[in-house]
């Protein structure tokens, strides 16, 4: 590090700048073309003519009944929160018990949960439909939340138990001698210490819930009044993939809010991920 010369620094900065621009070009194409008529998108995909820029197509996409933007966002946000509440809420006590009970039974239990990490969620959807149907939860948001949470539990529990194992046992033993109950020790002493790893789990689960398409598509089905962002975009765009007057504005509406959230929360999101990577 001491030997970095100005030329090498300049080269490095230049390379990173070029790569960053390459990453951003698709965004630029999407934004510019969302405001142009089809003919112009075809003639000059990168340029724009201030005179013919129009918000008509954005307005049309906003009003498209296949993809109700605001409701789509509300449903997706609800999924993100509800899945995290269930997955984290269920994983904390389980991970605590497993980490603090060094018997073969609980070691096996950890293995039992961890095995789930190798089961791709969308692949077991077909049989999961039969289970949800038996429970009467098929086609409902709670059914969807339970299914998505169950696929998050293995990883969440795995990183939680690893983290709790690193917390000094003397902490909860001291509290236990003071007469505190197990639940109280867990939620008032251990849980606050788990903040970094909970943040990591929350972010990872949130990203997977946010981006999930197959689960809401199959579990909610056409009968449901609920659309997530992904199923809404699919309904609005899939039969018109080359009608760019529909594609670009719809995609723009779908990504702008999440990108804003990302820009605002960027430090926390990426920081949370790397915190988990170091400790987990």
């Amino acid at each position: 590090m001491t030997r970095t010369t100005p030329i090498r620094t300049a080269f490095r900065v230049g390379l990173v700048a070029v790569l960053s621009i390459a990453m951003l070009v698709p965004m630029y194409i999407m934004v510019v073309n969302a405001f142009k008529p089809q003919q112009e998108i075809l003639l000059s995909p990168l340029g724009f003519d201030l005179a013919t820029l129009t918000t008509d197509h954005i307005a049309a996409a906003w009003q498209n009944t296949s993809f109700p933007v605001v409701e789509g966002y509300a449903v997706t946000l609800f999924l993100v929160l509800a899945c995290n509440v269930v997955a984290i809420g269920a994983s904390v006590p389980a991970a605590y018990t497993i980490a603090r009970t060094p018997t073969p039974l609980f070691r096996f239990l950890l293995f039992f949960f961890v095995a789930g990490m190798f089961v791709p969620a969308q692949i077991i959807l077909v049989p999961a439909i039969f289970v949800l149907k038996a429970l009467g939860l098929m086609g409902t948001l709670p059914g969807l939340v339970l299914f998505m949470s169950s696929t998050m539990i293995p990883f969440t529990l795995f990183i939680f138990s690893g983290y709790i194992r690193m917390l000094p046992r003397s902490l909860d033993e001291a509290a236990s001698i003071d007469g505190a109950g197990r639940q109280r020790i867990l939620w008032t002493i251990v849980f606050p210490l788990m903040r970094p790893i909970v943040a990591t789990a929350f972010i990872l689960n949130a990203l997977s819930a946010w981006n999930d398409f197959v689960s809401p598509q199959l579990i909610l089905g056409p009968g449901s009044q609920f659309r997530t962002i992904t199923t809404g975009v699919y309904a609005a765009v899939s039969t018109y993939t080359t009608n760019y007057e529909i594609v670009f504005p719809t995609l723009l509406l779908a990504v702008v809010p999440i990108l804003l959230i990302f820009v605002l929360m960027q430090r926390h999101i990426m920081g949370g991920l790397s915190a988990g990577a170091v400790k987990g």
Partner: peptide, 18 residues
């Protein structure tokens, strides 16, 4: 303590795998 996690995970991941 492990019951809630076990129930959700078993019900919607293990049983479907079965």
């Amino acid at each position: 303590m492990t019951l809630p996690a076990a129930v959700v995970y078993t019900g919607l991941t293990v049983v479907p795998v079965g």
